[in-house]
Design a protein around this nucleic acid. Structure first.
Lengths: 338, 338
DNA sequence: ATATTTAATGCGAACGTTCGCACGAACGTT
DNA sequence: AACGTTCGTGCGAACGTTCGCATTAAATAT
C-alpha cells in the first residue's frame, strides 16, 4: 500500500521543520527562496500530497455537497440523473468540492438524515431535488441556516434559493405552436393535482389557451400517473370518438405518456402527425427514435446542474447571491409527431 | 449554524473526562453502568454526533469509494447509471461507506487522477467501470495493491477482482432462441473489434451458430458504432435484398442499433416480428414501448452494483474473496419484435 | 558598540477523535 | 496488616494539517 508521505517526511528530507514546509506549499512568501526551492523539490521527489482528512479537520470544512434523489421505480426511467449528476460533479470538482450521494429516505426519517449529515460534519451544503409542496427539508435547512440550493420550486410564499426550469413556459410554447398550426381542439394528459411540477406546467397550458381565447371540455384534461399505461388508456379514450368530436392534438407532461398516446392512435389506425398531433415533455433520449419521432420539450439539465452547484458554492463561501432564484427556459423540439 | 456538539461538551455536562465519553459511546464495558447512563443521556440531550472528519483522521480511513464513469455523449443514453449508482450507494451506505463520484479523465491524466485520490487519502477503494483491454488503471491499482473491483472484464491473462455480466451467454440465449424458432439466416450488428464488451458478446453469437452447425456470410456481421444511425443504415443494407437472400433475423449489441434496424424494416415495408425478427441488447427502459415492443437482453445491473461494492468492502477490510471473479447471467426478454 | 528593525524559521496549539497505559480506590486474600 | 486483583477513570499521545506567535540571526539605524 506504500507508506504515506506527510509533511514530516518532506521536512526531514529538506532538513527543516514541517510547519515551514506547510507554509511553502501553501505559498507563503515569508520563506527564503533557497529553502523554498529545496522544500519544493523534496516534496516533488517524494510525491507529497496533502492528506485530505487532516486538512478538512483543520479547516472545519468537509468540502462535500450532499445530494440524494428518488430511486426510479421499476419500469420507469430517469433520463435526467446522468446529465444532472455529471454536470454537478464537474462543476463541484472544478471548485475543489465533491459530491456526496446518499440514499433517499421517505417520510419522517428524511429530515433526520439531513440533520445527521450536518451534525456529523459530513457535508457543507446540499442540493435538493424532487422538491414538492411543503417540503420539510426546506423548512429544516432554512431554520438551521444551512447552505442549500433546490433544483425545483416549492410553495411560492417561502423564500429560498432555487434553480428551476420554467415548465409553464414550455407548455405555453407547445400550445402556442399547436394553435399557430391551426389546432383548436387540444387535449392534455396531466398529473395529479398535488404535483407541483405538474401544476406549473398546467399553468402554462391554460395560459396559452386563454391567450388565444380557446376553451376545451374539462374531460380533455385527463389526470393520472406519468406512465405508458395511463397514456395508452387516455389516448384510446380521447381518440375513439368521431373525427369531429375528438381532439386534434394531445400534449402530455412527459414522454412516457406521449408514447402511450401514440400507440393508442396507432391502434385506432390514426396516423400521428396528420390525424392527430402529439407533443411530449422531457425529450427523453429515445424519443427521437420513435416512429414517428416525438416532438417534445427539452430541458437544459446540464445548465441546471451547473447552476445549482455554482449557487451553492457561493452560499457555502458566505457570498450573497445576485439572483437567489433562477428560472431556465426549456426548448420545444419539433419532430414528425406534430 | 448552531455550535458543534463535541465529546468535550458531553463530558462537561456529564462531569467526566471526554475520553471516557468516547469509550462509552463506542460501547466499552469498562465503565460503571451508572456513569455510562449519565453520559448517554447527556449525549442524547445535546444531540451529539461524532465528527466524521476527526474520526476518519484518527482511523486513517476515509470510508469513501471512488467511482467515475464516461460521460454520455450527446444524443446517447446511459440506461445503466441510475440503477448502478443507486444500488452502489445503497450497499455502501448500509455498510458505513460512501460513494465519491469524480469526473472521468481520458488518456495520460486518468491514472494520475486515481493516484491523486489515493495519495491524498480521499478514498479507500475504487469501483471501475468502462473497463477496456489493457486498462492502465488496473495495472496501476494492482501495482499499488490498492483495493478495487472492476465492473467488467479486461485482458484474460490479468488476474484482478471483477463483477461482470456474461454478454456471451446473453447472445447465446438470443441466437438459440431464434434458431429454435426456425431462423437459419441471422445477421448481427456488432461493434468495432477493439471493444472488449463487443467481443465478449460476439463470442456467444458465434458459439451458438457453431453449436447449431450454422454459418452466415461474413458481410452479415456488420461492425460499427452502437448508434441509431448505424442501425438504420445497416438495416437498410441487409434488408433491401430479395426475400430469399436477406436475413430473417437481426440481432444487435444494443437497443439503439436495434431501433435503427426496426425503422429500416419499417421503411422497406417489412413487418418486424413476422417478415424479420429483431432482438436488441440492454433492455433500455423505453424498448418495451416501441412499436412493436423490442425483445432484448436484460442485464442484472442492480445486482452487479451491489456485488461490486460488497466485494470491494471485503477487500478494503482485508478479507479475502471467496470468488474473486463473478459473472452474472443476463435474461432474454421476449416481446413482439421476435 | 548598542539598539532597533526585518527576515527566516521554529514551535506550540488546535481541529475532534480513539487508544492504551497509568493511576487510585475498593475489594478480597493470605 | 500487608499485599495482589479488579474495576473505574484520567491522561497523554497520536492521526496530519494550518495558524499565529515566539525566537533567532542578520541587517540596518542610532
Amino acid at each position: 500500500m506504500s507508506e504515506r508521505v506527510t509533511l514530516k517526511q518532506v521536512a526531514a528530507k529538506a532538513g527543516i521543520s514541517y510547519q515551514t514546509v506547510s507554509k511553502v506549499l501553501n505559498g507563503s512568501n515569508q520563506v527564503a527562496r533557497e529553502t523554498a526551492e529545496r522544500i519544493l523539490s523534496a516534496a516533488r521527489e517524494l510525491g507529497y500530497r496533502p492528506n485530505t482528512m487532516a486538512r478538512n479537520l483543520r479547516s472545519q470544512r468537509s468540502w462535500m455537497i450532499g445530494y440524494s434523489w428518488i430511486p426510479t421505480p421499476p419500469n420507469q426511467v430517469n433520463h435526467i440523473l446522468d446529465l444532472f449528476l455529471t454536470s454537478m460533479v464537474q462543476e463541484a470538482e472544478a471548485a475543489g468540492y465533491h459530491l456526496l450521494p446518499f440514499p433517499y429516505q421517505e417520510g419522517e426519517e428524511q429530515v433526520e438524515t439531513y440533520r445527521e449529515m450536518i451534525d456529523s460534519g459530513r457535508v457543507d451544503g446540499f442540493v435538493l431535488s424532487s422538491v414538492e409542496y411543503d417540503d420539510p427539508r426546506i423548512q429544516f435547512l432554512l431554520s438551521r441556516q444551512f447552505p442549500f440550493v433546490a433544483f425545483g420550486r416549492s410553495n411560492p410564499e417561502i423564500d429560498f434559493p432555487y434553480v428551476d426550469i420554467d415548465g409553464g413556459a414550455g407548455m405555453r410554447m407547445t400550445v402556442d405552436y399547436l394553435i399557430k398550426k391551426g389546432h383548436r381542439r387540444i387535449a392534455v394528459l396531466a398529473w395529479p393535482e398535488n404535483s407541483r411540477v405538474g401544476n406549473d406546467r398546467m399553468g402554462g397550458f391554460f395560459e396559452a389557451l386563454n391567450n388565444a381565447a380557446l376553451s376545451i371540455p374539462t374531460e380533455w384534461v385527463m389526470r393520472g400517473e406519468g406512465t405508458y399505461e395511463f397514456g395508452l388508456k387516455s389516448g384510446l379514450h380521447l381518440l375513439s370518438t368521431s373525427p369531429d368530436q375528438r381532439p386534434t392534438a394531445i400534449v402530455t407532461l412527459n414522454d412516457t405518456q406521449a408514447i402511450g398516446a401514440m400507440v393508442a392512435a396507432h391502434e385506432l389506425n390514426l396516423t400521428v402527425g396528420s390525424d392527430v398531433d402529439v407533443i411530449g415533455f422531457d425529450d427523453a433520449p429515445m424519443s427521437q427514435y420513435l416512429y414517428p419521432p416525438l416532438s417534445s420539450i427539452r430541458q437544459p439539465i446540464r445548465e441546471a446542474g451547473r447552476l445549482c452547484v455554482e449557487q451553492l458554492i457561493k452560499l457555502m463561501e458566505g457570498e450573497s447571491l445576485i439572483e437567489r432564484q433562477i428560472l431556465l427556459n426549456p426548448k420545444l423540439i419539433i419532430r414528425a409527431s406534430a
